[in-house]
Design a protein around this nucleic acid. Sequence first.
DNA 1: CCGCGCAATACGTCAGACAATTGAGTTCCG
DNA 2: CGGAACTCAATTGTCTGACGTATTGCGCGG
Lengths: 246, 246
Amino acid sequence: MAATRSGGGESAKLRVRPVQAAYRQVAEQLRDQIVSGALPSGSRLPSETELGSMFGVSRSTVREALRQLASQHLIDTTRGVTGGSFVAAPDAGLIADNLGGSLGLLVNSRGMTVDNLIEARLLLEPNAARLAAERADEDGLAELRRTVEGTGHLDPDEGFTVHWDFHTTLVSISGNPLLHVMCSPINAVLRGRMHRDRISRPAWDGIDEDHVKIYEAVAGGEADIAETLVREHLLGLKPLYERMED
Amino acid sequence: MAATRSGGGESAKLRVRPVQAAYRQVAEQLRDQIVSGALPSGSRLPSETELGSMFGVSRSTVREALRQLASQHLIDTTRGVTGGSFVAAPDAGLIADNLGGSLGLLVNSRGMTVDNLIEARLLLEPNAARLAAERADEDGLAELRRTVEGTGHLDPDEGFTVHWDFHTTLVSISGNPLLHVMCSPINAVLRGRMHRDRISRPAWDGIDEDHVKIYEAVAGGEADIAETLVREHLLGLKPLYERMED
DNA sequence: CCGCGCAATACGTCAGACAATTGAGTTCCG
DNA sequence: CGGAACTCAATTGTCTGACGTATTGCGCGG
């Protein structure tokens, strides 16, 4: 039922699952309650023991179902007398983390190539820069500014981190959390596949220079220029990822 | 609470988590093994009992960890003598389904707006159409063709389904599975929020006409035209989603 | 009035047992 | 000799009961 197999075209396997395992049924029902809004965000679920008697299953089974929900970030669980399982507020960052793990796996399994990632990035980030230029506020610009100033006297490792902070921040101030959800995982995978050792000092300086120029365009509200600069910046970075025959 | 704000640069909260719960540690270690490729896709994990003695925890704890991995589609578990937990082959469709659920939740919780979705869609789909026009093969074009022919004599319900098939197919023949992963969830959420009742007969006809024109541009390899047509098509559809104050 | 410890609650973990499922090896009959 | 039915062992699924541990609130005493 949940295995909609949406990826493939043909109906591949239609095994008549006699019955779902109990923990799956419990998880599914709770999940429906949560996503449908019947259990509002922040509300507390009954205790594990209560859930067990409600569903007519043991506490172990309930716990396995709860683990499933927790790993989808649908609930948060705490201990103690005021503890329990609470419906979690959806958080874009957590969703992005999840997606990042999945995408990394897809790349590793040859289901997707680094080129696919770069291509998607080229669709998203330049446009994110455009949006950022059009509607970033003071706070956002200040945050972005912090990632471009004083990069010269950083050791390579810190510089590496700051480099990615720039891209992350740029996307997040575009005002569309969905772009953040989609770009972060892509960048996370790319970051893991970058040969940072092979980047020469002049190359780092060039990158920093690009970032400064992009920042200025965004801060000045020049959407077209920001978009173009980011596109060229990414194209220039492309060779750093490509040589990864492991 | 658990709002780690992964986007931000600063180290937000440094709660001294004394120790992670055992089932989390087990899940994390297994997860690392899987995503790092140490456990190749398709390989079989030790039995739950063995894992328990390897990690020095009980079988219940192992099972909770496995449930967590299973819900991320990292493993598949079957019963029987040849059963066990197997590292799953990552599947773009399943990832997209997961993401779709999360995005729906984000929209419902006001963490994201329908406008955000439409904006992202406008960045992705027109470019996907361009790519499709540039590199779709015969099979892909045939598949796309099936979604545009004979739409006139369909009842509204079927027409509705076919309409979404067109968009899904268009993206999937772009040759970049990542675009499919990102567009499918967006369309799934949008589809759920569409007022199909309010679409008049002439409106449906206009939509079908657009699809045919887009198909022809893609089949003819006219990338620029395809991109523009899709953008205009989506802009024309926009009003159908916007009136959703529930 | 303030601090300290105890009780209550709920999650976290463990151990052991039995049921259900599944494929492989084995046996038996045509 | 071949195939169908049966037995069996391995593994997950579920239950039960117990105990450990974190967290909070309340009451007691100084």
